[in-house]
Amino acid sequence: MRDMFRSVKLRTKIIIVIAILAAILVPVIMRDNRYYMNIFINLAIYVILGSSMNLLIGYSGQISLGTAGFYGIGAYTSVLLVMNCGVPFPIALIAAVVLCFLVGFVLGFPATKLNFIFLGLSTAGINTIIYLIINNSQFTGGASGITGIRQVQWFGENMNKLQYYLMTLAFVLVVLFICFRLVNSKTGRALKAIKGNQIAAAAMGINVNRYKLLIFAITSAMCGLAGVLYAFNIRYIQAEAFTVNNMSFKILTMGIIGGMGDLGGGVIGSLIAGLLPELLRNFSRYELTIYGALIVIILRFMPRGIVYPIQLGLDKLELLFRKKQKEPAGTGKEV
């Protein structure tokens, strides 16, 4: 475990600590503004979604246009369990995540054997089917959705927005930690090999389908978790929130623009994609146009994502910093 963190640069560690502190402190300062608190909670949920997509595309070379379907399964399962069966929230949450994992696992069995074009198409299909079932069934409230979802309790009291945010943030950190462990382990190395060359990886004795299936199921569970957190924050869910054309595409954008195959890239991509509509509130009808353009521009001009130039910049800064430190001792000239 300690070995694993040793691979992380000091610079990255400092950035992570600052990011976590900022993620806790800024909302604590702004806790009275409900509008901002909702944005913070949504951003945290987006980070989970974006990281799941980043893990899927960046580390296993698969693509899913069905993420919004799992997001919806998570939301509806937990809400129906709490509202109709009176199950406590934590148990409903676990049940929803487990269900999404299982559904992802079962669907992933055949799906992971397909190449990315067919995988994209069939996951879009799965999403559409889930959407149609939600939209046309009695028990999900049909097209009008479910309103008045009960608030989450915390020691017998309704959770306020800050508490809810901190809970969501805790989930984000847990999810990111799991992702980090996953990619810096035997599994992660196997995934890198698969992404590099599937046939070569299989020849080296890596069970390609098993690893792809594992990642597919884990990302489904992550989307399910995000769905639960979304439903109990907004407390009103509707089938329209879980369509391929809007939500799955948004999740795809989040996972891609930061930088594929880079956990930090996933987080930054999600934050950018999540903040854009808030910054461009007056232009909300341009939202999807901008997302589409973002994907095209990023993949065309910086396929390594937004984090890559930032990393290069930091590298240069570090180099400058080191040189300045060394110059007085005169070591710089000898070498």
Binding site: N245, I256, I295, V296
Partner: peptide, 9 residues
């Protein structure tokens, strides 16, 4: 992925 983005755009 680009063509998916392009379609939406």
């Amino acid at each position: 992925i680009t063509t998916i983005g392009m379609a939406t755009f």
